[in-house]
Design a protein around this nucleic acid. Structure first.
Lengths: 254, 254
DNA sequence: TAGTGGTCTAGACCACCTG
DNA sequence: AGGTGGTCTAGACCACTAC
């Protein structure tokens, strides 16, 4: 296979780099590169200049340029081969990935999210909740159950258990901003989550809430989220209407 | 919240570093650290020494030490906070993640994988296959359909379309080694994949093959895989028995 | 042989958090 | 004020690929 011809980068792509501002240089570079790829200015299969020349042209050190490129390799937009170069991955849909909330997912795809809080109780933690949150069994925790919709169509039923320190979270906050944004406003940032995606037949009650005909399949997600300090913050047990929601991701071999 | 006391690393944890061999230093370090965490030698919540001291103790430069730690941050095993330090994430199950084949997943969990090739044809590419593989509609492609099982229990029905250049892949190779390993043996390494996970009700035929009672839910995966050079190599359309398989992952906020 | 990315070093300055 | 991680520089040598 003949390597693709080298694609010179548009000279103005990296104009206006802010060398003193708070935004890291590598991030400014990778953002502009990503935008050029998704815009199509760098088509699938295009080969980039080598990183040393690019660094020199931009007046950067090589490690900084490498880091910018590596960001996009990790996102699955670029592939690199020693001795060959760096190329844009084929394929039409650069899909989103990672740790986002349903609320943000829907907003990003321009669907108008809606929330109804179905239940909100302080309950003693069942065994599986206690294990996930790292508290003693029977410890009081906050239980939430919400119905989520997009443009008026039911999308998901989401159940959450949180440590009792979040017991002052109100239904109004949840319906207005979503759970993750509410947590952020309280200074709690989710950093890591461990999750399991599976499927099952919806119960009669779920079918009614989601407005689907039994028997129906639902997509399920169990997720334990951790904050900056590595503490368990939230256990989520959700089910989604598969015709309204799916999990898209780009995975990269390590 | 008081920061956890600093945990001194076992002095022998990093003995026998090979400074001249082919294995990168950062990888040797991160592997040993990961092993110490999963083994429990570094318990959940433990705070590591600062990276500068660790680098000095091991006779490494700080960037190399940083890279080793960053590997584990990206895997979701560690969290870092400026001004605070590096801590081990809570939670019991450091789960696997990323781009693996079903065959490897099953082998890793000590379940004996089995494969039966149900279909193997060269067919003209339907529109959705042509779009995914970046070939013209109607171009000949290889179509495979396999039944996968673990310890004799049906787990999945996997359908794949590949470019015609892989038409010499035999049923025997697939049943013996799985698709990805067969591709690797031919010098094709999957580097990136874009995938979508959803769910639906199984068809009667699928229920029969998977040995489940209708109506049943199946977990579905659509995946387009790309090689080192960014070329589309494979389109997979799979369905899984949710009681036998689920998608576990650890996600990290960017 | 020439060109590419992969690794590693030895520093520097800065931003953020805690006391 | 002191300690932490976050960023950046300016080099060096090596491994792999192509011709």
């Amino acid at each position: 296979m003949t390597p693709s011809p080298e694609t010179a980068l548009p000279t103005d792509l990296f104009a206006d780099l802010d060398r003193n501002g708070p935004i890291p240089l590598y991030f400014q570079i990778s953002s502009r590169l990503e935008e050029a790829i998704t815009r199509g200015a760098l088509p699938a299969g295009a080969r980039l200049q080598n990183e040393i020349d690019m660094a020199a042209q931009l007046g950067l050190s090589r490690p900084t340029m490498r880091r910018a490129i590596q960001e996009l390799v990790d996102k699955g937009l670029l592939v690199r081969q020693r001795g060959i170069g760096t190329q844009v991955v084929h394929g039409p849909n650069p899909s989103k990935v990672g740790l986002s909330s349903l609320y943000e997912d829907l907003a990003n795809t321009h669907r108008n999210p809606g929330t109804i809080v179905l239940e909100r109780h302080v309950v003693p933690a069942p065994e599986f909740v206690a294990a996930a949150l790292g508290v003693g069994e029977g410890t009081e925790v906050l239980f939430l159950r919400r119905k989520r919709s997009a443009d008026g169509v039911p999308v998901a039923i989401m159940a959450n258990h949180l440590p009792i320190s979040f017991a002052d979270v109100t239904a109004e906050q949840l319906e207005r901003n979503g759970l993750y944004q509410t947590l952020r406003a309280r200074g709690t940032n989710i950093r890591v989550a461990k999750q399991r995606i599976s499927a099952r037949i919806a119960t009669e009650e779920e079918s009614a809430i989601l407005d689907i005909e039994s028997p129906a399949a639902v997509l399920t997600l169990e997720r334990v989220s951790f904050d900056n300090a590595g503490r368990a913050i939230e256990l989520g047990t959700h089910c989604y209407r598969p015709d309204q929601y799916s999990f898209d991701s780009t995975v990269v071999a390590r």
